[in-house]
Amino acid sequence: MGVKQWIGQWPVYRQLTGTDPLGRGSAAQSARSAGLEPRTRGADRVVDSVCPYCAVGCAQRVYVKDEQVVQIEGNPDSPISRGRLCPKGSASKQLVTGKQRVRTVRYRAPYGTQWQDLDLDTAVDMVVDRVLDARRKGWQDADEAGNPLRRTMGIASLGGATLDNEENYLIKKLFTALGALQVENQARI
């Protein structure tokens, strides 16, 4: 390769001598980057979603090909995030496609040292039994003066900010119906 040919590949030279004096287009492109195409180009469809990590509610576009998530990007139509995502939101594709993701119900018995896999029905039954037992043990029907309380001090709820308004509304209704007083959400703290 001659000196002139080598200098011609140099981006600054292309910027100064070519049609891209600001270096924002072809002058800044390498041969490799000129041949790249977006990961979203081959997607079958785009699904609108919301980032699951915090209470901000940044909108996302989820690109799907063959029923598999291929890319997640910010939605520029969102008045909240205007197409931008924080580092956690940008990495949310790993939440659904990561190899490290646990896809089974894991349980470790009290004082146990090993985790074991449970089927979903068994796990749900265990949770229901424990909630009802804690509700029963902490139930207060009336105070010392006979005033009705109808509450339990045995259970509480601390919700996460990844839940939407409808989910938080239903959780509040559930725990209120159970008689719990301590119903809080991490987004409000």
Rank of each mutant, 00 (worst) to 15 (best):
V46P: 01
L118Y: 02
T97F: 07
V69F: 01
C51R: 12
A31R: 10
G35T: 02
V69N: 10
R45Q: 04
Y107D: 11
L118Q: 01
A59I: 04
A55D: 15
A55L: 10
T97C: 02
Q29P: 04
A109H: 06
G74V: 11
K93L: 13
D129N: 13
K99Q: 15
G57N: 06
Y107E: 09
R130S: 09
D129M: 04
P76L: 14
D117K: 09
K137H: 15
Y63I: 05
V128H: 09
Q94G: 12
K137W: 10
D44M: 14
D133A: 03
Q116E: 07
V46Y: 11
C58Q: 13
L36A: 05
Q140V: 13
V127W: 07
G42T: 10
R45E: 02
V46L: 15
E37D: 10
G35A: 11
L36T: 07
V124T: 04
A123G: 06
G42R: 10
D133E: 03
A34G: 05
T40F: 07
V70A: 14
Q114L: 07
E67W: 04
Y53A: 08
Q29R: 11
K137G: 15
V96S: 12
N75R: 06
R108G: 00
S33Q: 07
G35D: 12
P79C: 02
V70F: 02
G138K: 00
Q140A: 15
S81H: 10
R82T: 07
W115I: 01
Y111D: 08
R135T: 11
K65S: 06
L85H: 08
A34L: 14
G98A: 03
R32N: 14
Q140G: 03
L36H: 12
G35R: 05
I72D: 03
W115Y: 13
T113E: 04
R135H: 08
